[in-house]
Write a protein that binds this DNA or RNA. Structure first.
Lengths: 155, 155
DNA sequence: TCTTTTTTGCTTGACTTCTAACAATATCAT
DNA sequence: ATGATATTGTTAGAAGTCAAGCAAAAAAGA
């Protein structure tokens, strides 16, 4: 269904570029909402899931700043998400000998167990949600989005 | 640039569907951040801009619930955004004779002047940000995203 | 009519996000 | 080495988001 129809607009889009941008944002919101619903079943927010997932799929030690870059949020945001995860006993901040400014963030046993339990459901949801596109179409979509970002970064 | 490179991941994506979903979300975030930067120059948040823009491009009277559906946020969210806009004197809630449950939301003169001032900058930014894609590519991108949403809605 | 259901807007509380500022620490340049 | 600069993590404050629950009002059904 067209976005204009979905949003019940009384005037169709007159600006193709505008329509494209809103389609990207609206699709992202739709996907994020599905994710949020899945994570809530495990008492996690999307941000909390993202941290756990990043920690699991990271080989080297990672600092809070690294995590921020990876998830594209500020250091201040990471601080508060980690606080919540630490309260729940899912991660720990490990002191790094030789550098008193940084912490290494690590999954606890409990944290690892939780993310291991969620991940199959997450993979399954991705599979389902993207089942409407072929592999070639996925690649095409990625390529178009990369070009949008490239232009955006030039701003 | 690939998303994996952008995020400095040490392992490339092994799951094409996952990569696609993250590309959509990350591109939307990038675009939203650009928007936020533009709106901040006019002392508006993105949510506030979205409300003003919707009000301007709406012919019929619109209630708070309508606005929520249009912007895909809950009624609770709309309430607080409207409170802020009302404090600034940019919108007003108009009592509807014959139905004491609803309000019509309308731009004030000040609100209309502001959105009129911002809109050309917004259009220009859209133009710039999407200049990397041809019209045909925009249509292709929209079509792929619509199919992702169609599948998502089936969940 | 009268009861039940639905819709509407609001409040509260939890969470995330940002910007701006800060202190502690590390790094760089002279 | 020492003074200037940059990085790291934190805090505080503002804003938005949602879910859940509420009261008032409207709509639907019996």
């Amino acid at each position: 269904m067209s976005l204009a129809a979905e949003l019940n607009l009384d005037i169709p889009f007159s600006d193709l570029r505008h329509e494209t941008v809103l389609n990207i944002i609206h699709t992202a919101n739709t996907l994020a909402a599905l994710g949020a619903r899945l994570f809530r079943g495990f008492d996690l927010t999307e941000a909390q899931f993202n941290v756990l997932f990043s920690l699991k799929h990271k080989n080297v030690k990672i600092t809070q700043s690294d995590l921020g870059k990876r998830l594209v949020v500020t250091r201040a945001s990471i601080t508060s998400v980690l606080d919540k995860l630490q309260e729940k006993g899912l991660i720990e901040r490990v002191i790094v000998p030789g550098n008193r400014r940084i912490h290494h963030v690590e999954l606890t046993v409990k944290g690892r167990r939780l993310i291991d339990k969620i991940e199959p459901h997450y993979r399954q949801a991705l599979q389902t949600v993207m089942s409407g596109l072929t592999e070639a179409e996925c690649r095409e979509l990625i390529s178009l989005l990369e070009r949008v970002r490239t232009t955006s970064r030039a701003q």
